[in-house]
Computed example of a mutant assay.
Amino acid sequence: MSTAWLVAARRRLCIPLLAGLLVGCASDPPVHVSASTWRQVDQDIAAASRSAEDQARQHALEAMQRWLALVQRQTDEEFIPWFYGYWTQQWLSFKVSWYKLGADEDDPTVRRLAAYLQEEYQELVLEPVAEEVSPERILHGSTRLYVRLLDMRLRSIPGRHGVPQEQFDQRLAALPVISGEPGASLYQLIHADPLERLPAYAALLERVGAVPGGDWSADPGISLVAQRTSERLVDEMTTSGAVSAVAAMVGRVAGTALSLGATLFTLISRDADRPESEAQLRQSLAVALDQETRALLSSPDRGVLAGVWYLSGQIEEGLGRPFQYQP
Rank of each mutant, 00 (worst) to 15 (best):
Q43K: 05
Q43V: 07
Q43A: 14
Q43E: 14
D44F: 11
D44R: 07
D44I: 02
I45R: 01
A46I: 09
A46M: 09
A46Y: 11
A48C: 07
S49R: 12
S49V: 12
S49I: 10
R50S: 05
R50Q: 02
R50P: 00
A52W: 15
E53I: 00
E53A: 02
D54F: 08
Q55G: 07
Q55P: 08
A56V: 02
R57F: 07
R57T: 07
Q58A: 09
Q58D: 09
Q58I: 07
H59A: 11
A60W: 08
A60P: 06
E62W: 05
E62M: 09
Q65Y: 09
R66Y: 10
L68T: 09
L70V: 01
L70I: 00
L70M: 14
V71L: 07
V71K: 01
Q72A: 13
Q72S: 15
T75Q: 14
D76L: 10
D76P: 04
E77R: 05
E78K: 10
F79L: 04
F79Q: 00
I80R: 02
I80G: 00
I80V: 13
I80T: 06
W82R: 02
W82P: 02
Y84H: 11
G85S: 15
G85L: 08
G85M: 02
Y86I: 14
Y86L: 10
W87Y: 09
W87I: 12
T88K: 07
T88F: 07
Q89G: 11
Q90N: 08
Q90T: 09
Q90E: 15
W91M: 06
W91E: 14
W91Q: 14
S93W: 03
F94R: 12
F94L: 09
V96M: 03
S97H: 02
S97Y: 10
S97R: 05
W98T: 15
Y99E: 03
Y99Q: 06
K100N: 05
K100I: 10
L101M: 15
L101R: 08
L101G: 13
G102W: 06
G102D: 04
A103L: 00
A103I: 01
D106F: 08
D107N: 12
D107M: 05
P108G: 01
P108R: 00
P108D: 01
V110H: 00
V110I: 13
R111V: 13
R112A: 04
R112G: 02
R112Q: 15
L113S: 01
L113N: 01
A114Q: 09
A115M: 07
Y116M: 10
Y116C: 04
